[in-house]
Amino acid sequence: MTSSRPALRVCGLTKSFIVHAQGDLALPVLRDVALSVSPGECLALVGPSGAGKSTLLRSLYGNYRADGGSIRVRQDEAWTELVGAEPRTVLDVRHRTMGFVSQFLRVIPRVSAVDVVAEPLRRRGSEPAEARRRAEFLLAMLGIPARLWSLPPATFSGGEQQRVNIARSLIVDYPILLLDEPTASLDAANRDGVVELIRQRRDAGAAIVGIFHDTGVRDAVATRVHEVLPPAQPAGVSPGVAA
């Protein structure tokens, strides 16, 4: 399924945090990161805790601001550069091309689980009834009991909230998916459901970058791994690890 033309291409990506309250303390995290992901590939980011895997993923989504380098996304048969892009460019890429599954659901007061899930599809102009049907399908597939669908997820368990979050991020067929520990707080049965969904997306041609601490999950979904090195070490000296 791997096509030769990448969907996401990163080079020279650099990111540090400057903490002004600590006397402008500089914490370098990413230095000269390069990677490229094609449709049908799932790239697993590996590396010790604190190496910057989440920072890398969030930088790809534009949630963290890169200091330099290039993050290019294939959209409308052309490359769109995200480093230094206008907010509306990043929002357009998020709207149409790139989805993100975070570990935690940001709860919206008073909005029911099914509407939380359906929202990204509605925003893209789908019929509300159709968006709702698809949301219910995903919630059922992820094992959220139907009696919870009309309730706001604020009171749900951590695992339930995470599955609502996954459903929300997967309701649109994004060509690029970024996954930050999508199975972190799930039991075995629910984890398998999520793994199956990710594999389906990958095999349907999504380009995926993810962090999977569970090696079983990683082996089940990843086609390659990319090692993220702690900032103290010089970049580019570690041999790539093949999946």
Binding site: H20, A21, N63, Y64, R65, P87, L91
Partner: peptide
């Protein structure tokens, strides 16, 4: 200034960080 979630999750200026 910038994208809302980026300004709130990765604030750059000392005042925004505060």
């Amino acid at each position: 200034q910038g994208l809302t979630d980026q300004v709130l999750d990765d604030p750059q200026h000392a005042y925004t960080q505060m």
